[in-house]
């Protein structure tokens, strides 16, 4: 039997190569991965008043629109909150516990002052005047299915008796997702006079209500003066 070890090894090696071909079929190269592709999709340029749902406070315009399914796939690589669920919620129906909805938020500073747009302190104020904080970064990450597909993973693990791993592949995808979210999420920035900035706001879907408003603090950069920009949540999907 020992004399057959050479043959046995060749057979095992062949099986590994075959399984890997299957596994790689389900694990496309970096440039074809949907999360990597989304990382390279810059948010479209907007001025806040190009969006139907906008408000103007002292020449500073805040606009917001829901990210529909197509936009989520394009800019995030995956749908994390479907149009169907969002429509239901906008009609005050449906159970959306632990779900996260996505908004495109645009600020345009038409005042003559430089401002700090404090996106990291964004909150939703509901009809009862309760403040609901935007979703935590790690909670948003958890909404993404980045692990290798079941088919490739199963073949990879079964044929190698559980030794082979798709961990490197998973790590690659989570790397893309993190980089993408860090780049596109709303944060604290300086907005110069005449400039606009677009970013993504993730909010708990449970806070969606026709009477809810988005509240974002800003600061004047001539003196320490603060102001809260407020805008109704959009009532329909664009």
């Amino acid at each position: 039997m020992i004399l057959n070890i050479n043959k046995t090894f060749i057979i095992f090696a062949s099986i590994f190569y075959i399984q890997n071909s299957f596994a790689q079929y389900n694990m496309p190269p970096v440039e074809d991965d949907k999360f990597f592709d989304a990382l390279n999709q810059e948010l479209e340029f907007f001025e806040a008043d190009w969006i139907d749902n906008h408000s103007i406070t002292r020449d500073i315009i805040l606009g917001a629109s829901w990210m529909n399914q197509d936009d989520q796939e394009n800019y995030l690589g995956q749908i994390i909150f479907s149009d169907k669920k969002l429509n239901k919620k906008l009609n005050n129906k449906g159970n959306v516990k632990n779900e996260i909805a996505v908004l495109l938020v645009v600020i345009t500073n038409n005042s003559k002052y430089r401002i700090i747009f404090d996106g990291s302190s964004t909150s939703i104020i509901n009809a009862e005047k309760n403040k609901i904080q935007k979703s935590e970064f790690e909670d948003v990450i958890k909404k993404f299915n980045f692990k290798a597909g079941r088919f490739g993973k199963a073949i990879s693990e079964i044929s190698t008796l559980g030794i082979a791993s798709s961990k490197g592949y998973d790590e690659m995808r989570i790397g893309s997702i993190r980089s993408n979210l860090l780049k596109k999420s709303i944060k604290k920035i300086i907005v110069e006079p005449g400039k606009s900035s677009s970013s993504l706001l993730f909010i708990p879907a449970s806070s969606i209500n026709t009477n809810s408003v988005i509240s974002i603090p800003i600061q004047n950069l001539k003196r320490l003066i603060y102001l809260d920009l407020q805008l109704n949540l959009p009532t329909e999907i664009s």
Binding site: A13, F16, Y17, Q19, N20, A23, Q24, M27, P29, V30, A148, S156, T160, I163, A164, S165, S166, K167, G168, Y169, E171, M172, G175
Partner: peptide, 12 residues
Amino acid sequence: IYAKGLGARIEA
């Protein structure tokens, strides 16, 4: 992304 370990491991 590429395969290593005689094709048994996916690395990036």
